[in-house]
Design a protein around this nucleic acid. Structure first.
Length: 352
DNA sequence: CATACGTGGGA
DNA sequence: TTCCCAAGTAT
């Protein structure tokens, strides 16, 4: 079968099965010549990096309501943007999002560049996102290669070499299929196919638009592809977090360093996290209580067990962090690990 | 090329 | 419970 026939078949499938998403331009609007807003395409693609559509939906809606265009976002306070991103994960994305918005406004008059190469130079935009924005927002024939595309190509062409070594080969196979016409729809079509039909487990080959040309299906090896190199086991790390509440209801919090885990996010002062709890001092002198509570949380590359220490304090000066008044503290501004600690501690520190 | 970087849902 | 995984990027 010719490559052009394959991409045509997928576009026909996409026209009937495309999922509705807040950042997509529907068929009706597209028929009226409406193009996707590059700002919304960019924002959604950054949020979708390593993150499911279901998790992104409400964050995307909230962001565009608060900041309708790149100029508004560029003018936002760092702390507010980080707070709105809280819970979505990979917080370097939020820091880069702001940096990118400010570059676009200050160096490009608020217009996103319309080529893959120019987009690639912006913070937080890598090969995938640059191609996605160029194709979807600017109708350029660029090839998007994400996890979905890799999986679909590995199966369509029965590539048995394991990832990540096979990335280059899978990218070349994807490029050979990218059409000149409707490249943005095609890009989203392959990803939709991977997300809904050609899934990692239990793929729905019976209703796949590419079931006939699929080589892995012909060979009966769909379920085993793509092959992947084995992953390292996650070690367990331990730490202690200190939750202090002042008599007037204020909470002792700190903004974490820009670099590293949860960089730039609000959190409870505490020890570093290591195989054994590292030596450290509490953030403020107080009658610290051990409630026997532990927050268990799994990050990308380790499991964490974070023990809690709780205290009620008077009008003291902390060595670390700052007291945030109760009426200015939103638990939703906390990354999930820190919010779990709050959820455990709040009932105790709020009582009488 | 390998590693750091979050989270929630599903099997 | 545990493991895997999701529209990747930066270093």
């Amino acid at each position: 079968m010719r490559d052009a026939q394959l991409s045509d078949d997928l576009l026909i499938w996409y026209d009937r099965h495309a999922r509705v998403m807040p950042w997509r331009v529907g068929p009706m609007e597209r028929a009226e010549g409406i193009r996707p807003d590059p700002y919304r395409v960019w924002l959604s693609e950054v949020m979708l990096q390593q993150t499911t559509v279901a998790a992104v939906r409400d964050y995307f809606r909230r962001f565009v309501a608060l900041w309708p265009d790149v100029g508004a976002l560029a003018a936002a306070e760092d702390a507010q943007v980080m707070g709105e991103w809280a819970g979505l994960g990979y917080y370097a994305r939020a820091r880069n999002l702001l940096a990118c918005a400010r570059v676009v406004v200050s160096e490009n008059g608020g217009q996103f560049p319309d080529t893959r190469d120019a987009l690639l130079r912006l913070p937080g935009i890598g090969p995938y996102t640059a191609a996605a924005i160029a194709a979807i927002a600017f109708d350029r024939s660029e090839t998007v290669v994400d996890g979905n595309v890799e999986r679909v190509m590995a199966r369509l062409h029965a590539v048995e070499a394991p990832l990540p070594g096979s990335k280059r080969q899978l990218g070349a196979l994807a490029a050979a299929l990218t059409p000149e016409r409707r490249p943005g729809d095609y890009a989203q079509a392959v990803m939709d196919l991977g997300a809904t039909i050609c899934t990692p487990r239990n793929p729905a080959c019976g209703i796949c638009p590419w079931r006939d040309p699929c080589q892995a299906r012909a060979e009966g090896i769909v379920a085993s592809l793509p092959r992947k190199s084995p992953k390292a086991a996650k070690p367990v790390r331990h730490g202690i977090a200190y939750l202090a509440r002042r008599d007037d209801g204020a909470w002792l919090l700190e903004t974490r360093p820009e670099r590293g885990l949860l960089g730039g996010m609000l959190g409870w002062p505490g020890s570093d996290w290591a195989q054994d709890v590292p030596p450290h001092a509490p953030p403020v002198a107080a009658d610290w209580r051990d409630p026997g509570m532990q927050v268990r949380h799994t990050f990308t590359h380790f499991h964490l067990r974070m023990a809690l220490r709780l205290a009620r304090v008077g009008d003291v000066s902390p060595a670390r962090g700052r007291f945030v008044p109760a009426d200015r503290f939103r638990p939703s501004d906390l990354p999930t690990i820190m919010r779990k600690a709050y959820d455990l501690a709040a009932p105790i520190l709020s009582a009488g």
